[in-house]
C-alpha cells in the first residue's frame, strides 16, 4: 500500500460517485419518479373522476341531483387535480434537482473563479 494509493482514493471514489450518479442512481430516480406518478393516479383516480363527470353522485338521477353532482364533481376534480399536480411537480422538481444539481453546483463554483 503506497501513499499514492491513499491519496488517490478520494479522487477514485469521486469518479465512482459521478459514474454512479448518472448511471444506476439516475435509473433509480427515473423509476421512483414514474412510480410516484402512477401512485398519485392510483390514489386520486383522476381518469375515473373525469369519466364520471356527468354521472350522478350517490345514484341521485333527478335533475337537482345531477346539478349538485356536476358542481360537486368539478370542485372535487379541481381539488384532486391540484393535489396531483402539486405532488407531481414536487417530485418532478426533486428529479430535476437530482439530475441538475451536481453540474449546476460545479458551474457556480467554477464561475466564481472565472
Amino acid at each position: 500500500m503506497s501513499i499514492i494509493q491513499v491519496l488517490s482514493l478520494p479522487i477514485v471514489e469521486l469518479g465512482n460517485a459521478i459514474r454512479w450518479w448518472y448511471g444506476p442512481g439516475l435509473r433509480w430516480m427515473n423509476r421512483w419518479f414514474i412510480r410516484e406518478l402512477v401512485w398519485v393516479e392510483q390514489r386520486e383516480h383522476l381518469g375515473r373522476w373525469m369519466a364520471n363527470l356527468f354521472s350522478p353522485m350517490y345514484g341521485d338521477a333527478s335533475w337537482q341531483g345531477r346539478m349538485i353532482s356536476i358542481f360537486m364533481r368539478i370542485i372535487v376534480l379541481v381539488y384532486r387535480l391540484v393535489w396531483s399536480l402539486v405532488w407531481s411537480v414536487l417530485h418532478g422538481i426533486m428529479w430535476l434537482c437530482y439530475a441538475a444539481l451536481p453540474p449546476l453546483a460545479l458551474l457556480m463554483i467554477v464561475k466564481r473563479f472565472l
Binding site: 383516480h45 375515473r48 373522476w49 369519466a51 364520471n52 354521472s55 350522478p56 353522485m57 350517490y58 345514484g59
Partner: peptide, 8 residues
C-alpha cells in the same frame, strides 16, 4: 365507490 356513483 371511488367515483361516488354507488348508492347505499
Amino acid at each position: 365507490n371511488i367515483s361516488m356513483t354507488s348508492t347505499a
